[in-house]
Amino acid sequence: MLHIRCPYCQEMRSEEEFSNAGEAHIRRPPDPAALSDAEWGDYLHFRKNPRGPHREVWVHTAGCRRYFNVLRDTVSYEILDVYPAGVPDPDAPEETTP
């Protein structure tokens, strides 16, 4: 039974108040029409599923109903970080301006 800090309610809450909403920081294709079927299929269906730290989206379903990001170790289940939705992926390489 995980104990998760909601970054909006700013409290530790029990797992049953939350729902997992999958992998965080998925890069959405800006122009889906430009993608081949295979590329679109990759985007739709393929996820990282790592062993170890994993960035996930959770939602405080029974609480403030806000989505936020969680860095969770999939082996130990320890929660290493929580931060609001909209914060850029801390692991992403820095964007270079064209």
């Binding site: 729902s19 989206v57 939602v59 989505y67 939705a85």
Partner: peptide
């Protein structure tokens, strides 16, 4: 409702 909020809160902020 959860689906709509997901898009509103995470992708279309």
């Amino acid at each position: 409702y959860a689906w709509l909020e997901f898009w509103r809160q995470t992708e279309w902020r």
